[in-house]
Nucleic acid binder design. Structure first.
Lengths: 339, 339
DNA sequence: CATTTTTCCGGGAACGATTGCGTAAATAAA
DNA sequence: TTTATTTACGCAATCGTTCCCGGAAAAATG
């Protein structure tokens, strides 16, 4: 049943040439006569010859594949990023191997191990919300694996990074709530370890201060699992509801948390925005179909994937060690509910 | 900058052994003495030796990777399937290469070509809604590529297939509308070429006939691009609204179409379900957060991915040509809106 | 015509692993 | 002691390519 693809050897034998000649002819080398080239090319085309990528990989010591680690692909934000990644990677002849951490540290370590064992040429990663220890990434990086961080970056590792202006995005969203008259604004945030959490909470606080409101620590709740466990979000919201005076609005720092809050508020029959306004980061395409109209901070996810991949391929294909690392910051967009 | 992994040769040289001995020691061959084995194993562990998967692939003529083609990963249904696929594939040591057809025929052909050029060991595919011609799949299959179809299967190719009981699922959903009193029930369906479309429309019609209602062809609209283009859905819904007497409910045959209808109805300010009831297939996790409570047909997507992968790996690892092909049919679940 | 330079092509090693076969030494059987 | 059998390892081919050399024939030069 096993199909045997045609090799360069088959062509050589059939045309009574050496494999070297065939190889060179196919690569349009100058040391092969035009006549021979044509013969080889025609015959190869007839047999639909495709050079074996595995043999090439072995020779070049490159797998032509890159690994991607995200929290979960079922998340619109990440699936849009992946689309951006694939658009660039495939065009440049790279295969993308996608894996998910499910916001779990051990899973992230295991999956990285797995990707390394498949000898990826480089890695794109948005670390899990449970990731605090960076040893697994550091050691891979030190042993020569090119890495580009996107979305959730880390400070301790010096390499290219791509993200949005989280501070500004959070600032805008919070300001929007303030402009609408809300004053007691709570924040349901991701794990405290994440770079994006710090930045987004920072923007949130800055907006409050802009309105001379002193940020209240009891109004900021962190979700270690990034909302992967609904109970976590439910607990956060419940605690917020118990605070006196009760907050009137929530700013959620991620997609999963925004929809998570929505879910919990619905479950507890708390009208949005009448009893509790809600805004947050989200790239969900269904956001405007939700039962309550909410304003969200949208990220240029597709573009983020593209940019990150371009930077990674630069690292991979660079001859000399790269020393000059870039941190690209894209802009978010505040999207209002449709009428 | 390039990291050089340790090879079997390095170990052999360091231990003054031949590569064959090292290889055999690592594989715990009986023809290597216990003493030698221990030396090799210890040294290999110290250097964190990992056999080069590419060299192995070349030798075994197996890439240990499988290709997956779906319409789009941003669709909950497909991303859940992919999770199921990965769970089985990774456990068995296979890498999953995901690609998307975006419901486009040419893209599907190109992406299949690409996967083949990466020498995948097998393929899992849910064909695009635009796929009518099956030549690309047939020729791959004939040249020996193991294929398992899931979700959207095709009749002309004899191999394993995994799907849900589409007929029953559609029947249940339509029946539910009938039981609620709706009588003019329209159907917004996927491309007419798809197996699932025929089956689901069949179930829809059967339920109507159960209630002695003759299916009205003007109430069935097909969307060639499976809802990837919202205009397509909008046109379908507009046409339905123009039919006299106007239908009072819509049954949509896929995830994208269900949310698409929702979107269009909202845009045209048609209240759901007061002015127009809606039900359909959907695996979206946000479905119960939508502004209108709707009942949906949910598929065991994760399980479908698992089953399909198990069948594919059976095909791949079978020594003899497989003749006995299975068609596994899973059950759908009718999910009602939360209170 | 003799020599140098091109042109064009083949031999064979290499990439990193596995594996059939051969064989020296050690052990067992005759 | 001689022969047969194990035991434990090395040699070399193989997977499909690329590419460094080396060299014969053809072309250009003196």
């Amino acid at each position: 049943m096993k199909y045997k693809a045609t090799t360069i050897k088959d062509i050589a034998k059939a045309l009574n040439l050496s494999t070297s000649t065939v190889s060179r002819a196919l690569r349009d080398s100058h040391e092969i006569s035009a006549a021979t080239k044509q013969t080889v090319l025609e015959y190869a085309a007839k047999l639909n010859f495709q050079p074996n990528p595995i043999a090439l990989s072995l020779k070049e010591r490159k797998s032509h594949s890159i690994g991607v680690i995200v929290a979960e692909i079922a998340n619109s934000f990440f699936s849009q990023i992946i689309n951006g990644i694939e658009s660039v990677a495939n065009e440049k002849g790279y295969t993308v191997i996608i894996s998910q951490s499910h916001e779990n540290f051990e899973k992230e370590v295991r999956t990285l191990q797995y990707l390394a064992s498949r000898s990826i040429d480089g890695l794109l990663i948005s670390v899990s919300s449970a990731t605090n220890d960076l040893q697994h990434l550091k050691s891979m990086y030190q042993s020569g694996l090119p890495i580009v961080f996107f979305d959730r970056t880390v400070e301790e590792i010096q390499t290219h990074k791509v993200m949005v202006d989280n501070y500004q995005g959070a600032y805008n969203a919070t300001l929007h709530l303030l402009e609408q008259g809300f004053r007691r604004i709570a924040c349901v945030a991701n794990s405290e370890h994440l770079s994006i959490t710090k930045e987004r909470v920072g923007g949130y606080m800055a907006a409050l201060q802009q309105y001379k409101i002193e940020p209240d620590p009891t109004l900021i709740k962190y979700c270690f699992h990034g909302g992967m466990l609904l109970e976590e979000v439910e607990l956060a919201v419940k605690e917020l509801l118990a605070v006196k005076p009760r907050p009137t609005a929530i700013f959620a720092t991620s997609d999963k948390l925004t929809t998570g809050c929505m879910r919990v508020l619905k479950k507890h029959k708390i009208a949005v925005p009448a009893a509790m306004a809600l805004t947050g980061f989200s790239n969900s395409e269904l956001i405007h179909l939700l039962h309550a109209p909410i304003t969200v901070v949208q990220q240029p996810a597709y573009e983020m994937g593209q940019v990150a991949t371009e930077l990674l391929l630069q690292l991979i294909e660079s001859k000399r060690p790269v020393k000059d690392f870039k941190t690209k910051m894209l802009q978010t967009k505040l999207v209002f509910p449709e009428k």
